[in-house]
Design a protein around this nucleic acid. Structure first.
Lengths: 158, 158
DNA sequence: CTTTTGGTTCTGAATTAAAAGAACTAAAAT
DNA sequence: ATTTTAGTTCTTTTAATTCAGAACCAAAAG
């Protein structure tokens, strides 16, 4: 059972509200937030369960999907039976990238729609073409932004 | 009642599955998709209700939230009592921008977390700083990307 | 003024999602 | 060999969404 200051509890609260709004299940959101604020960055299954006062089953499934989604890594320490769970901060970047790509993949459908539309509605079709062009543009630009970031990071590590 | 080809029905299906996965309620998703594929781009309440075979209450609440979220606009034609509903394609761009900004606003919370963290966990804190720096970077870059797009559009309209 | 139209709002009912609880399992410890 | 540990998986319960159906309402038409 991890002792948390009032501040830390508040942040867990705020952070998980935020993530839940974005579509994440509450237990997952609270685990992620706990792993961000906790003084120890590697917590056991039971520490998480006790601290968040949640059932084993809920913690188990939440942790498994978090590990699957590369949001959390599970660490085993030789000679210690328990697994330790740690927030995968390092993957934030690439998770963000994946998320954006998924958002932009709607463009495929928009192109299908354009192909099927009547040619009568010129203005509407032009607006649709603009949206498609915009998303295509974003896709290209975002790749460049990510590349720029990676280069900048490499420099700093010299 | 709008007549739809098989193709159009399929796209409504695919598109709404996509949007529902992203967290949108089914009726809203189907209305949006219908307004994208339909040959007529402005449909009445009852055309929507009949075509999607849905209850008045469901259509009413869905349309109202869609209008509220600037996804659909409602048009009134003088001398016609009915309202016509039309997909707000033009707002796609700014809706996307708002969505991204909201995503990036998580950074405020991450900064709070960093401020509250113990200084013992140097590596973790450094990773957290990197994430924060990354999001700050994205924020700046995205503004530029949007500006670039807008300029490019202005040019084309000359 | 009464009726019709074009919706809205207010219950439920049905579905879905999330969490709890309990039974289970594999590995490790005794 | 039995028990404990660390967690998983299955079933049930609870809670939240979503939709339908009916009553309702305001503006326009007759």
């Amino acid at each position: 059972m991890i002792e948390l200051k009032a501040e830390q509890l508040e942040i867990i609260q705020k952070m998980s509200v935020f993530q839940v709004r974005a579509g994440m299940p509450p237990t997952e959101a609270r685990i992620l937030a706990l792993l961000l604020v906790s003084d120890r960055t590697e917590l056991t299954f039971d520490e998480i369960r006790e601290t968040l006062n949640t059932s084993k089953s809920a913690v188990s499934t939440a942790l498994n999907t978090l590990v699957l989604r590369n949001k959390v890594e599970s660490i085993t320490i030789p000679g210690d039976r328990k697994r330790y769970f740690k927030h995968q901060l390092k993957n934030w970047n690439s998770n963000a990238k994946d998320g954006l790509e998924k958002l932009l993949s709607v463009n495929q459908l928009l192109k299908e729609i354009l192909a099927v539309r009547t040619s009568e509605t010129e203005d509407f079709n032009q607006d649709l073409k603009n949206v498609i062009a915009f998303i295509d543009f974003m896709q290209v630009e975002l790749v460049q932004v990510f590349e720029k970031w990676n280069k900048q990071q490499q420099k700093e590590n010299n």
